[in-house]
Every structure is written in C-alpha cells, then in structure tokens.
Amino acid sequence: MSNDNEDLLDKGKQNNTKVKEERKEGEPTSAFKGASWAALLIGVTSYLIGLYNANMQLNEKGYYFAVLVFGLYSAISLQKAVRDKDEGIPVTNIYYGISWFALIVSISLMAIGLFNAGSIVLSEKGFYGMAFVLSLFAAITVQKNIRDTQRSREKD
C-alpha cells in the first residue's frame, strides 16, 4: 500500500515540475534581457513624448531628435568596436577613433543644446539629459545582450 502512495506522490511531483529552459553559458538571463529592452523603450519613448509635447520650434525638435539618433548609433558602434577589439576581431584604428569621436560629439551636442536652450526650463533640461543617457546606456546593453546570446548559441 505504501508503494502505491509513493508512486502517486512521484507522479504528482512530475506533473507539478515546470520544464526550465536551459540557458547557455555566457547567455544573459531573460530578466536581464527584458530589463534592458524595457530601459531602452522607456528612455526613447519618454524622450520622444517629451519632445513631441515640447513648446519649441520644429527645427529645435529636429535637432534634439537627430542628436538622439546620432547618440544611439554612435554608442552601439563604439560598443561593437570595443568588444571586437577585446575578442581579437580586427578593428581599424580609424574606425575605433571615429566611434569614440562620434559618441563624444553626440553627448557634447546634447549638453551644448540643453545649456543654450533658453525656452526650456531647468527641470525639462534634466529630463532630456536623463532620458538621453538612459537611452544610450540601454542601447549598449541591448546590443551586448544580443551579441552574448548569439555567441553562446554558436558554441554548440
């Protein structure tokens, strides 16, 4: 009789156990990937909503939009160049230097634009600055996660 009870308990345990997907070595967790994507979407969406609702001329809005796109691209490009160099993948010094230069220029353009923006109150300047930095950091993290996931799956 006790064997029957043990068999029933074993079957119950088997039915209640969840199948956990195996994560490859070096692959980021799903939670980290999700948090990175969420940070990117929140940063970019907040920035764009703020820009859409801003009381500034269209050419000013275009400037801040272009700086965001330039900043995102330059941050991802620099992350890729740094990672390639670290992994022994050939990267020319000119591309590496231009990647650094582009990121510095994009951050400088944002800082100079906000510093000189007389029509934007200080709290809005802080909002744009923080949304910009969040977006850059999140873009780098998302790109890193994609690359780590791809690399871990190629090992098999």
Results as ranks from 00 to 15, higher is better:
Leu134Pro: 00
Asp4Lys: 07
Ile94Leu: 15
Leu122Ser: 12
Thr141Tyr: 07
Trp37Lys: 06
Asp86Asn: 11
Val105Phe: 12
Asn3His: 06
Met130His: 15
Gly26Asp: 13
Lys80Tyr: 04
Ala131Ile: 08
Gln150Leu: 11
Thr141Phe: 13
Met130Ser: 15
Ser135Lys: 01
Lys80Ala: 08
Leu134Ser: 11
Leu72Phe: 08
Ala138Tyr: 07
Ile112Asn: 05
Tyr73Met: 12
Ser119Cys: 08
Leu51Thr: 01
Thr92Asn: 15
Tyr63Phe: 14
Val121Gln: 14
Leu40Met: 03
Leu58Ala: 13
Lys18Cys: 14
Ala117Leu: 09
Glu87Gly: 04
Ser106Ile: 04
Ser108Lys: 07
Leu103Asp: 03
Ala75Thr: 02
Phe127Gln: 03
Ala111Cys: 00
Trp37Asp: 11
Ala54Lys: 00
Ile120His: 04
Tyr52Ser: 02
Tyr73Ile: 05
Gln150Glu: 12
Ser74Arg: 00
Leu114Thr: 04
Ser77Val: 05
Lys155Pro: 12
Leu58Glu: 15
Asp7Gly: 14
Met1Leu: 10
Pro28Asp: 03
Lys85Ala: 13
Asn93Glu: 15
Gly62Lys: 06
Lys33Arg: 13
Gln57Asn: 08
Leu9Cys: 15
Glu87Asp: 11
Ser2Gln: 12
Asp148Arg: 09
Leu78Thr: 01
Ser119Asp: 08
Leu114Ile: 02
Ser36Phe: 07
Tyr73Thr: 07
Asn16Gly: 13
Ser135Phe: 04
Gly97Pro: 01
Gln79Leu: 00
Leu9Pro: 14
Lys61Ser: 02
Met110Ile: 02
Ala138Leu: 08
Asn55Thr: 12
Glu154Asn: 10
Ile42Leu: 11
Leu40Ala: 03
Arg147Gln: 07
Asp86Arg: 13
Phe70His: 09
Ile89Phe: 14
Gly12Pro: 10
Gly62Phe: 03
Gly118Lys: 11
Ile104Thr: 14
Ala75Pro: 02
Asn53His: 07
Ala66Ile: 06
Ser99His: 01
Met110Arg: 00
Asn116Thr: 00
Leu51Asn: 03
Asn145Lys: 13
Lys85Met: 09
Val67Trp: 04
Tyr47Phe: 10
Leu103Trp: 05
Lys33Pro: 05
Lys125Arg: 09
Ile94Cys: 03
Gly97Lys: 00
Asn16Phe: 10
Gly50Val: 07
Gly26Ser: 11
Leu41Trp: 08
Lys144His: 04
Thr92Trp: 14
Ser108Phe: 13
Lys20Trp: 15
Ala54Arg: 00
Val19Phe: 09
Arg147Ala: 12
Asp86Phe: 13
Val19Asp: 14
Thr92Tyr: 14
Ile107Ser: 05
Ala102Gly: 09
Phe70Trp: 04
Ala81Leu: 00
Met130Leu: 15
Glu124Trp: 09
Leu68His: 03
Asn145Val: 09
Lys144Thr: 01
Asn116Leu: 02
Lys24Phe: 13
Ser135Ile: 01
Ile76Gly: 08
Leu40Thr: 02
Leu78Trp: 02
Tyr52Asp: 05
Glu60Arg: 06
Leu72Thr: 01
Asn3Met: 10
Ala66Cys: 10
Tyr64Leu: 15
Thr149Val: 03
Met1Ser: 11
Leu40Gly: 03
Glu124Ser: 10
Ile76Pro: 04
Gly62Trp: 06
Glu27Phe: 08
Val91Thr: 12
